[in-house]
């Protein structure tokens, strides 16, 4: 049989999915054991005992100075910024994407502008944001919005433009006005794509969040990583990176489940 026609069963699919993760952990264990054998005080690749100790210190012991449980207070601070940024970006993207996708005049006005803005490297704007909006929350949230919104706008506008012309014409023959076509034909059909494009922008959003927190903040997951970097505290950095990854992966999966639950038809259309 050709290789392209061989499909893994359920058990081997799970095993295959886990294999790279297990390999990574094993490689880390070997590297860590070797370095610790050379130097028991090595800080670069701490063993699992040291990692576990650091996790319980960050997550379950109150900080002596502030009385906070640092992992949780950092997580809450970061997620607040992230959700505010993504929420604002999503709202802007939905509105502008819809308008650009439907109205030729809005497209002529906004499409080239959004295309140009999307090319501005957001991190290059970070100093400007800090100068104009101060070092507080607003500039961090603004960085996330500026970083992800233009791409989401373009993606949604493209999706709206991709809708077959026949469908729009059919709605017109059913007496739909422009408003009604936007509300009941185009909007519901780009909402599943909105969730997908949000999933794809989770990575960049975290990137911008951590960049902003690294430079100026007093809490947050990115802040903590860059703070403890000074003491080479890999035992804290590794769990934090893992935790951020877990949060992002969980959000990604939950958003996809949400799409299937709210828009069951979008899953049916997939095979077409």
């Amino acid at each position: 049989m050709r290789w392209i026609n061989l499909h893994p069963g359920n058990g081997s699919r799970l095993a295959l999915a886990l294999l790279p993760f297990i390999l990574l952990v094993v490689a880390y264990m070997i590297g860590s054991a070797e370095r610790l054998a050379d130097n028991p005080n090595d800080k670069l690749l701490p063993g699992f005992a040291a990692l576990g100790e650091a996790i319980s210190r960050m997550a379950f012991v109150a900080d002596v100075r502030t009385g906070d449980y640092l992992l949780w207070s950092d997580t809450i601070a970061s997620l607040q910024r992230l959700s505010a940024g993504l929420g604002i970006a999503t709202a802007i993207a939905l509105l502008l994407g819809l308008v650009i996708g439907i109205l030729p005049f809005a497209r002529a006005l906004l499409s080239p502008f959004v295309a140009a803005i999307a090319m501005v490297p957001p991190l290059a704007l970070l100093p400007i944001l800090f100068i104009v909006m101060g070092l507080g929350e607003a500039s961090k949230i603004a960085l996330i919005v500026i970083g992800v919104a233009p791409i989401m706008i373009r993606d949604l506008a493209l999706k709206a433009l991709e809708l077959p012309r026949e469908m729009i014409v059919k709605a017109e023959t059913l007496s739909a006005s422009s408003w009604q076509i936007a509300l009941r034909v185009v909007l519901p059909q780009i909402l599943p794509r909105l969730i997908t494009t949000l999933r794809l922008q989770l990575g960049p959003a975290w990137l911008f969040l951590i960049a902003a927190e690294a430079i100026s903040s007093d809490s947050g997951l990115g802040y903590r990583i860059f703070l403890v970097r000074r003491y080479l505290s890999m035992d804290v950095i590794f769990p934090y990176v893992l935790w951020i990854t877990l949060l992002a992966v969980a959000t990604d999966i939950l958003l996809d489940r949400l799409r299937i639950a709210v828009f069951p038809w979008s899953e049916l259309e997939k095979g077409k």
Partner: peptide, 30 residues
């Protein structure tokens, strides 16, 4: 196009996000 002229194309004539009932009621609702 307007409601005095109905149309059926070879493809894309119905709305994928509406059920059969939703599709038929659609024009009346609009």
């Amino acid at each position: 196009p307007g409601p005095d002229r109905g149309v059926v194309f070879q493809r894309y004539s119905v709305f994928p996000h509406l059920t059969v009932l939703g599709n038929v009621m659609f024009g009346k609702e609009l």
